[in-house]
Amino acid sequence: MIATAARGEDLIELRGVTKIYGEGQATVRALDGIDLTIRQGEFVAMMGPSGSGKSTCLNILGCLDSPSQGSYRFADVQVEHLSLDQRAVLRRNFLGFIFQGFNLLNRTSALENVELPLIYRRMTARKRRELAMRALADVGLADWADHTPSELSGGQQQRVAIARALVGRPKVLLADEPTGNLDSARSKEVMEMLVEFNQRQGITIVMVTHEPDMAAYAHRQIQFRDGIIEAIQ
């Protein structure tokens, strides 16, 4: 369904994307006519004050939410024409997510957490295990595969989450404040890991962050304010 774009080609294109929440008097224009193009292999940071629409934009990019107006093209697909199930398939095959709150399944081992996306790709148990072990090794947690999230530190949990996001070799990694719950040393660790994946595997990364130090790792910084893009550096 999706032709692979070569590195440097346009992968994501938002045109006039508007998101309106609520009805009548209480409407909020979370996004107000955004145009944004992201190329294959880029590392983009989204910055801006609270409530400026960063998460809304990221959720739309992640096909978890749909714009009220405007169009979203992912590779050669117009996302607004996809059904809910087709979006789920797009997510499972091409997108990886990292959340601020890690969102690992508790009482489930690190390995099984990393295997989770592969289950929905109907991969066999052996193949899943192999790929998940490799992904855990990539984030330096090979020895922690059998531990549950409650037995891991915050930094380790976020690394498990990174392994889960990347185990299926997605085209795009979407991260909403991935270092929001971590101290500066752990944050640096995570960022260096993301940079490495971006460079070595060519994975496109879109990251929301409040911290300029973290945004500095990205190729481009997109400034949001009141639902519009104020500046791109």
Partner: peptide
């Protein structure tokens, strides 16, 4: 989480 990583409804 399951829905986000690609589970269908």
């Amino acid at each position: 989480t399951r829905l986000a990583i690609g589970a269908m409804r």
